[in-house]
Write a protein that binds this DNA or RNA. Structure first.
Length: 426
RNA sequence: GGAGAGAUGGCCGAGUCGGUCGAAGGCGCUCGCCUGCUAAGCGAGUAUACGCUCAAAAAGUGUAUCGAGGGUUCGAAUCCCUCUCUCUCCGCCA
């Protein structure tokens, strides 16, 4: 959510920044409602001040045993007018927050202007794309041949866009999770958290999945619960409505959770394999920082995610999302894209974003600056470190051999009981 | 699921028959004084949000907030209703 005060004072600037996203919002309506709200608020508060003063006098009279009936009658009608005003005010404030909650974040100055993903500049590239003297297979064929991925049975259980891993496949998923969590907690300084996988609406409003993106979420019958689409939601909301000590910042959390997504509107896209599922595991990194530190923290967050790919020896590149491709809540995002030889393309495997105070304002996450009065909103960041399923896809496709077996990268072997290669029936 | 108890400021804890209560007292914390050092002692301060005044900062001022929402009343932390959460006991359960 954008700051209403900032918007009020920088309407043209905000409008032009939003336009670079292709979503300029309804700022004229905002301005009118904001003005109406303040006028109404002032009027109502003046009346309340009067009522408070009158009531105090009535109290004083009554204490002396005097009759105050006339005054009481006069104040009664004031009370009715106050109530009427409050109702109008409430209606205006609801409309206003409706606008504010659906207005996207302003892109950071350093974000390249562009209309869609074709205009995302490449920031850096790492690793050598593997060269094969045979035709590399897509992961679903490898997985089936090796007997570690069983998509037909997954469909029998749950329908399209679900996966079933068996044997070395299931173990590989678990190995990846443990490897990633160990790296981030033991070497990168994150604290591991294990969160609920269902949350209530205020949490989703806090991180900005609601109210605008309800159609992407699974709603659970029998309660006001949603399945989390990413660990970002529960982890960021850990500190919702809290005032943190400055000395506690930055806070860095790592969490592995399943992610549940409807994938509405992506019919026909990535229908085969493990790339786009209704349920997948993801290790997520979340940070709470002081505003002045957040862009440095975005760089280190991205590096922390990249480190996973480097240790696994997976070639990748980093792109900076342009204004037109930026997520609703993000001020700046780097995507990590891993090379998939089976499909001869780079695919997103991590998205690292700085939300600045956009989520913090919705979720009321603040800190108390030392040596200054009052509170400030923290900046929140998060990034995948990494999407586990897509990581498995990348491993299979990059480390496949002519005979269909797959080499397990060095870094993962301790987590695989020393296994070096995945063979058929392994 | 059944029965009961509770929810007040960073923490503990008072709030009488509703009347000036943003809330006594204590602890903690901050600043100052005192003191060879530490401790103790003394003094002052110590919630948040949204408005308004102001060029702005500082400051001042208004309103709201005693789990949440609604009601009664001139006036509610105090009375009534609904909800949420916590604790205890019983039952059930991985």
């Amino acid at each position: 959510m954008l700051d209403a005060k900032f918007l009020r004072e920088n309407l043209d600037y905000a409008s032009s920044r939003l336009a670079t996203r292709g979503d300029s919002g309804n700022l004229d309506l905002f301005r009118d409602l904001d003005e109406e709200r303040r006028a109404l608020l002032q009027e109502t508060e003046d009346m309340k001040a009067l009522r408070n003063a009158e009531s105090a006098q009535i109290g004083a009279l009554r204490k002396q045993g005097l009759d105050a009936r006339e005054r009481q009658d006069a104040v009664r009608s004031l009370g009715e007018r106050i109530k009427a005003n409050e109702e109008r005010l409430k209606a205006v404030e609801e409309k206003l927050s409706g606008i504010l909650l659906t207005l996207p974040n302003l892109p950071h100055e350093s974000v390249p202007v562009g209309k869609d993903e074709s205009e995302n500049p490449e920031i850096r590239v790492w690793g050598e794309k593997p060269v094969f003297d045979f035709d590399p297979l897509p992961h679903w064929e490898l997985g089936e041949m090796l007997g570690i991925i069983d998509l037909p049975r997954a469909a029998k259980l749950s329908g399209a866009r679900f996966s079933l891993l068996t044997g070395a496949g299931a173990r590989l998923e678990r190995a990846l999770i443990n490897f990633m969590l160990d790296l981030h907690t033991l070497e990168h300084g994150y604290t591991e958290v294990l969160t609920p996988f269902m949350v209530q609406p205020p949490s989703l409003t806090g991180t900005a999945q609601l109210p605008k993106f309800e159609e992407d979420l699974f709603h659970v019958e029998g309660g006001e619960y949603y399945l989390i689409p990413t660990a970002e939601v529960p982890v960021t909301n850990i500190h919702r409505e809290e005032i943190l000590a400055e000395s506690a910042l930055p806070i860095r959390y790592a969490a592995c959770t399943p992610c549940f997504r409807k994938e509405a509107g992506s019919h026909g896209k990535d229908t085969r394999g493990l790339v786009r599922l209704h349920q997948f595991n993801k290790v997520e990194l979340v940070k709470f920082t002081r505003p002045e530190d957040s862009y440095d923290e975005l760089e280190s967050l991205t590096r922390d995610a990249e480190e996973v790919l480097m240790r696994l020896g997976l070639p990748y590149r980093v792109v900076s999302l342009c204004t037109g491709d930026l997520g609703f809540a993000s001020a700046k995002t780097y995507d990590l894209e891993v090379w998939l030889p089976g499909q001869q393309t780079y695919r997103e495997i991590s998205s690292c974003s700085n939300f600045e105070d956009f989520q913090a304002r919705r979720a009321q996450i603040r800190y108390r600056p030392e040596g200054a009065k009052g509170t400030r909103l923290v900046h929140t960041l998060n990034g995948s470190g990494l999407a586990v399923g897509r990581c498995m896809v990348a491993l299979l496709e990059n480390f496949q051999q002519a005979d269909g077996t797959v080499i397990i990268p060095e870094a993962l072997r301790p987590y695989m009981g020393g296994m070096e290669i995945i063979t058929r029936g392994g």
